[in-house]
Design a protein around this nucleic acid. Sequence first.
DNA 1: CTGTATCCCGATAGATACTG
DNA 2: CAGTATCTATCGGGATACAG
Lengths: 131, 131
Amino acid sequence: MSPTHNGITELSSTCAAAPDGGRAVRETLDRIGDKWSLLVIGTLGLSGPLRFTTLARQIPGISQRMLTLTLRHLERDGLLTRTAYAEIPPRVEYELTPLGESLRDIAVELAQWANDNMDRIEASRREFDTL
Amino acid sequence: MSPTHNGITELSSTCAAAPDGGRAVRETLDRIGDKWSLLVIGTLGLSGPLRFTTLARQIPGISQRMLTLTLRHLERDGLLTRTAYAEIPPRVEYELTPLGESLRDIAVELAQWANDNMDRIEASRREFDTL
DNA sequence: CTGTATCCCGATAGATACTG
DNA sequence: CAGTATCTATCGGGATACAG
């Protein structure tokens, strides 16, 4: 372990990669690293409170099952709240908690990065595959 | 927003977290959202260039197979470089590209967030489970 | 409208053994 | 040292049907 790399001093304190062997990172990725969580968070963060069907429409390709599961997990982790109104027809609204909003900010950065570098990644992949 | 979608679609540009319907986010998560990629990126970002075995030691729990696969994928996407030296015994060094380092910066933020909020998440989860 | 309950398949990843 | 080759177990997630 030779910390000879320059300009990474701010990392050593919290060690982004493995402060605890990577457990916290892994735990986090296990929640938001799945197929839909980040998109749900991003969508709610943009539009504010949304009901189930609206959410489903705004996230093309998601199944009822996966939307339900994703919402339950995020609710369980305190990233969003679920509010059911006793009406007919039933109405349920999902809304980000402050905790969820803070994660959304990172999600936005990740999305930005993805958009900014997608072409480069695609190019790199094509080149790699031709070799 | 267009309610007509078929398969992998595009979402309106109104979604800050997913300007392209989440395709870029999904693509990115498909690379770094797996079990080991972020840890590899973080470790390389912290320690600088590392060889295979050193990397394996710094990431407890990873198997040879998964380390190899993860490195190949990251190399393919242009996030790190692989340099083999014709020596005996053989030596191979992995190093982040600038692109990889830019992603690492986001990984750091995510890790930070994870560390800062892990307790809150755990608490929320326990409460959710008791209800 | 807002979910649950099953069935099922392909991808992911762990363990193990072998190699240049 | 730095991988590759298999085999296998698990599991996320899609399709579908049903329900409160």
